[in-house]
Write a protein that binds this DNA or RNA. Structure first.
Length: 423
RNA sequence: GGAGAAAUGGCAGAGCGGUCGAAUGCGGCAGUCUUGAAAACUGUUGAGGGUCACACCUCCGGGGGUUCGAAUCCCUCUUUCUCCGCCA
């Protein structure tokens, strides 16, 4: 959520920046500033009324003490009037605040200056590419066929137990998943991230804190009985651990990681792009979260990019990095780098990581701040990135490492799997 | 699931319906003393809104109520603790 004071100070600049997301902010900013004006003047009238009422109560108290009950009775009537006035003013105030919040919740984050304008993924900017795309032998298959051939992932079984998008990993497939999780967590630990095991259900306040609510309500599974949400990413519980916190300089930066299953409803997709592991309702992911001082956040973002690069290089997967354009970037992000692995058998790129800086967009909602050396309080920056999302990494490994003798295990994973080939 | 008790500032812990944003202790910060540190002593120390700065307003788990006036009384929700039951 943007800060009203920033909108006031940077209105024109923000309008231009939001145009890169194809978001027309002109009118909405005008209404925000008007409502904020209303909010402040109503607040100030309410404060005056309350101040008067407080004063009056003190006087009445004194009069009672000195036994002047008649005078006190007269003042009581005045007090009743003030009470009536403050009641209606506070209704006005609540109303103005609610309208203002609603508007603010509907405005996406301001894109960083390096974000290209654009309307779709076509306009994303490729900034890096590495790894050799293997030349596969005759008869190579997409991962869903490999999964069946070697009996390592069973989609039908998942259909039976739950429904589409909930695969069952079996035998070496299950072991491969566990190996990847352990490998990713170990790498995160080496890079200094503290590991957490987190709740998979979160409350409404957490959903608002990281920005999944109110705008992406349809993305999450909602447990209505308890009013809880299944997490779409570990970002939600990881970041919300720090909601309503005042950190000190020495706490920073905060770096944490966690492995969790992630749940996404993702209604309305179909076809080859959601085949196999390409798009699931439940999948595993190791997530990184950083909380940084504003002046360090973009350097930290580059550091996260380097971390993810290292993973892909060790796994020896061909990948590229995209800088997302305004139209493709998530609602809450100021700058996002997507990592994609080349799926040889499908002949397409698969997104396996998204690394973003949210600047103060989340911390404003989260009320996550720190006290700097001079004792000034300011909002921190939050960042997060997948390192990595498992299913598509697995798809990439299955497809790129397939040979007539079976699927070779990337060398770096062998200590974790205990086998070097799926056959 | 049943029965009781509780929720106050970074922590611990007082608090008669008015002078309580809240005693006291610890911790934090600044200073005195010291070659330096510790100890001791002195001062200072919650958050949000608002203002150029004051003033002023709000906040004692959340929400509602009683009252001229609520941390203090009532209702309700949540959480924690103790006892009983059940249970991986």
């Amino acid at each position: 959520m943007l800060q009203v004071s920033n909108i006031r100070a940077n209105k024109e600049k923000y309008i231009a920046a939001l145009a890169k997301r194809n978001f027309d902010a002109e009118d909405i900013f005008t209404r925000v500033l008007q409502l904020d004006e209303t909010r402040r003047s109503t607040q100030s009238r309410l404060d005056d009324t309350l101040a008067e009422a407080n004063q009056l109560s003190k006087e009445i108290g004194l009069l009672f003490k000195t036994g002047e009950h008649l005078k006190a009775g007269a003042l009581k009537e005045q007090s009743a009037q003030l009470k009536e006035a403050s009641r209606s003013l506070s209704e006005e105030l609540t109303d103005a605040v609610a309208k203002l919040d609603q508007l603010l919740y509907s405005i996406p984050n301001i894109p960083h200056e390096s974000v290209p304008a654009g309307t779709s993924e076509e306009d994303n900017e490729e900034i890096f590419k590495a790894g050799d795309i293997p030349v596969l032998a005759e008869g190579s298959m997409p991962h869903w066929e490999l999964a069946k051939k070697y009996d390592i992932i069973d989609f039908e079984l998942g259909n039976k137990i739950t429904g589409a998008g909930f695969p069952v990993y079996k035998g070496k497939g299950a072991r491969m998943q566990r190996a990847l999780i352990a490998y990713f967590l170990d790498k995160a630990a080496t890079s200094g991230y503290k590991e957490y095991q987190l709740p998979l259900l979160v409350n409404e306040a957490s959903g608002y804190g990281t920005g999944q609510l109110p705008d992406k309500e349809g993305q999450m599974y909602h447990v209505t009985e308890e009013d809880l949400y299944l997490i779409p990413t570990a970002e939600v519980p990881l970041t919300n651990m720090f909601r309503d916190q005042m950190l000190s300089e020495s706490d920073l930066p905060v770096t944490c990681t966690g492995y969790t299953p992630c749940f996404r409803r993702e209604a309305g997709s179909y076809g080859a792009h959601v085949r196999g592991l390409n798009r699931l309702h439940q999948f595993d992911k190791v997530e990184l979260v950083r909380i940084e001082k504003p002046e360090n956040s973009f350097a930290a973002l580059e550091g996260m990019v380097d971390h993810v690069k290292e993973l892909l290089e060790e796994l020896k997967l061909p990948y590229r990095i995209l800088r997302l354009c305004g139209g493709d970037m998530g609602f809450t992000a100021a700058l996002t780098y997507d990592f994609e692995v080349f799926s040889t058998a499908q002949d397409r790129w698969l997104e396996i990581s998204s690394v973003s800086n949210f600047e103060t967009f989340q911390t404003n909602r989260l009320k996550l701040r720190y006290k700097d050396k001079d004792g000034n309080k300011q909002l921190l920056h939050t960042l997060n990135g997948s390192a990595l999302a498992l299913p598509r990494v697995l798809a990439g490994i299955l497809e790129n490492y397939q040979t007539p003798e079976g699927i070779m295990v990337p060398e770096v994973l062998i200590p974790y799997t205990g086998f070097d080939r799926i056959d």
